[in-house]
Amino acid sequence: MSANTNESASVGYEAWTDALRSGSVLGVSCADCGATYGTPVAVCHDCGSRDLEPVDLPTEGTLHSVTRINVAPVGFEGPYYVGIVQLGDARITARIERDGADTAPEIETPVVLSGVIEEDENGLPAPVFTVETD
């Protein structure tokens, strides 16, 4: 972690990517009001506090919304699924994978963190959640 990161937000992007690559999803929780955010911010939206602490979000959750993207940007190859995943009190945007079907899974379907993709042109990671099968 670079020195600059420590001078800025209490929980920055680098901490989020480090956590993701080691198999956990880092959110932040406000020490003053208890609000939880799925991705780090420097100031609490609910109360204005700067005292935001890292919190490990659950790695199992449900699909809050999901779409199958057929027309992809340059650098990505469709089709694939992108969803908003509900993890406890927080939500994050993630790549969704499922086996044996070519339609988007239903909203509220259970999903579990299964890894990261780094297809971005600058190698930025994105979480991958997989639809749980019986």
């Binding site: 992007y13 989020w16 991705t39 809050h64 919304s65 999901v66 779409t67 993207i69 027309v71 992809a72 940007p73 990505f76 469709g78 694939y80 992108v82 969803g83 908003i84 994050i92 945007t93 993630a94 790549r95 909203i107 993709i117 780094e118 297809e119 971005d120 930025l124 990671p125 994105a126 979480p127």
Partner: peptide
């Protein structure tokens, strides 16, 4: 869309509004 927390998923703008509309 958010450079760090959304673009790396391959999210597109039709995708953004699809997520809003699907909900």
């Amino acid at each position: 869309s958010h450079r760090q927390y959304e673009q790396p998923t391959g999210l597109t703008f039709p995708g953004v509004f699809a997520l809003l509309t699907k909900r």
